[in-house]
Design a protein around this nucleic acid. Sequence first.
RNA 1: GGCGGAGUGGCCGAGUGGCUUAGGCAAGGGACUGCAAAUCCCUGUACACGGGUUCGAUUCCCGUCUCCGCCUCCA
Length: 468
Amino acid sequence: MSLRFYDTRARTVREFTPLHEGRVSLYLCGATVQAPPHIGHIRSGVNFDILRRWLTHKGYRVTLCRNVTDIDDKIINVARSEGVAWWEVSERNQRAFTWAYDTLGCLPPTVEPRATGHVPEMVELMARLIDRGHAYAAADGSGDVYFDVRSFPDYGALSNQRVDQMRGAADSADERAKRDPRDFALWKGARPGEPSWPTPWGAGRPGWHLECSAMATKYLGPAFDIHGGGLDLVFPHHENEVAQSNAAGDGFARYWLHNGLLTMGGEKMSKSLGNSLLIPEIVRKVRPVELRYYLGQAHYRSVIDYSDEALLEAAAAYQRIEGFLVRAGEVVGEVAPAAEVPAEFAAALDDDLGVSPALAVVHGHVREGNSALTEGRKERVADLAGQLRAMLGVLGLDPLSGQWGGTEDTAGLRDVVDALVSVALEQRQAARARKDYAAADLIRDRLGAAGIVVEDTPHGPRWELRRG
RNA sequence: GGCGGAGUGGCCGAGUGGCUUAGGCAAGGGACUGCAAAUCCCUGUACACGGGUUCGAUUCCCGUCUCCGCCUCCA
């Protein structure tokens, strides 16, 4: 079966064919860096990281452009309230986003452009729109530049709305000089004390939507394959992007993919609602890879209503997978990921990124692998472990990938601990041999208290550090 | 007012006009074990409600209820 995705604009699943053979250009709306990321942002990051990894696995050369909105009203407000420069706020939060993406195993984008670094491209785009009669500078001299919604018949096509039914866009607080209340700001003229960049129409700053059009075009070309982002960006952000770019004569995105939102207690998690759950807080409860499993296991378009219980369940499920690979490694040594993933797994991901049925294949392999391990069928164990690593690699969840493993230092430390624990385990085995179970259990309990879990197997005892 | 999504067994979460009706977590039973852990096997008979279409609907259609998102900054 072919690769296909649900396209927001078509409102149906469409077969995916890239613009250029063997290559995929992907634009993601990244963060407005007014605050550190919450798990909703990272859910989006994980969803699209899986998409990116799957495309890469299928042999496409993926160019991923993920922007950073480093200037906007809220950043200015945060800076003001803290008495620092706007760029201190955006730098600090951009680092927090990068840390969170890295921590969750999201591969870095090919390019990560910032809005304020692309003012000339935005000016060029505005000039084109004005020339073509789709935009105008405010007549009041405020420096605002607006997109003329009425001049573009397709406005509303992406979000399936008719202009007449829309409420006015209050994207400039005082509605300075719009011809139509639904017109949106391409550029916001500077008020006293605000950071600004010069343009032919006056000094000001980007009006959010414009930057994505300008940067997507710069890095991916006038037409590109996939544009992704959260469902809450469909309108107005993406509607406005596509309107600007199409009106300027650019083909823009060919497929629109939107991830479902993350809620907590049934309410959308949002910086402005103040119910943000931050990453450092969660990775105290579970390991980052377990959080990734939790965020990635549901279909990317479904809502995830966050709960600690569900998070811990996901961690348990992940540990089952990890447990097999660790035990397999002890028996057959390190197995490299297989070159190919099972057909059923591939079919699941090809079908609009069906991670859930793909994980069913993963768990099936784990179950069979555990049986093979019990039965001592080493070749089968190695075979299944290799396939599992390949599948988990696509999902960014391979516990042996190094991405999730310890550092060189802790690997060395592990050998030291192993030697020490072995001494204790030899004592315990001796006690068991003379049926002194009280002594044997005491040793196990003391190791347990130190965070070392002992398991007896047909091949002798094994130990590992308690997870979590 | 407009646009869109959702309600699945104790929990999470896929999916489908009928077939062995995913998978995980938890629970119960069994195997293994000195015990435990891990693992394997078995078990649960679910699709908000009311109609309709159909030989047959959780799956299609209509209506109702509830919840959520967007239409304003938001992944």
